[in-house]
Amino acid sequence: MSTVTTPSQAPTAPPRTPDVPRTPRRGRSRREGSGWPFVLPFLLVAVLFLVVPTLWGLGLSFTEQSLMGNGGWVGFDNYAEAFGDATMWSTLGNTLVFTLISTVPLVVVALVMALLVYTGLPGQWVWRLAFFAPYMLPVAVVVQIFVWLYQPEIGFLNYWLDRLGLDKVGWLTDTSVAMWSMALLTLWWTVGFNFLLYLSALQAIPDQMYEAAALDGAGGWRRLFSITLPQLRATTVLITVLQVLASLKVFDQMFIAFNGGSGPGGVTRPILQYIYDTGFTGYRMGYASAMSYIYFALIIAVAVGFQVLTSARRKEQRRGR
């Protein structure tokens, strides 16, 4: 990864406004033809498999559908029901809990890994393999491995806890532990992704900054806190935002680990699973769609919230200078 050499080239450059890329100058000959055919295939699949279902889902959310057939237009009934639905709120709460307890370690551990690997200790290949390999695994494999590790009696973790004289843990059965077990599994599985993002951001910090600091007599810790971490600020914000959005979409791990069930006391069932259960097991597709849209609104709110926060901060910084 010696390609990223200067900060301006780093993938972590501040998000540009999604301006339309430069257009060719006017006055070109006609034989170039129009650009339409280039975008047409994409527009086709985007409309068919993204725009249409998005609108269809919105339409469905105002109808009552069940195995009994189409109950027709019910206006905002589904939304009203959802807001009074304790299960929706509790599963939404589960999703938020997971997001909180998974995002923090997924950012912090990734940063620690990247900092350690960046020090250039020999064996770069091995470190990257160790940290990133789990990301390449299908989720079902990850869950199978962890269910085996979490096994109550002969599982690797409880066996060693017992040997060390500690209490065994109900990794998948204790209501206060199960979600942490899912977060731990997710940490192991996906931290490598954030690790690589951090690593490439680190490699984009110019050596001259460290050299200058070394001349000024700054020690290792001083350099970490005065150069490295400040330089990583923009990356950290981006990784955190992407991680929060990814964690809010959690579904696979819990669904597979608990065989489609909702975990001990229902504590691990995320809202996406409740939507899935409602639509595909309970066959209430209208209600499932309404909850999808409530969830969508949450995602958008989070994304916009971050956007507003970061742009406000950027403005502040600019004014400060």
Partner: peptide, 19 residues
Amino acid sequence: TVALIAVPGQILIVPLFRQ
């Protein structure tokens, strides 16, 4: 197109399946 980036595929499972 840029706006579509914000749409999470997960919310489309019901209508996409119907489709």
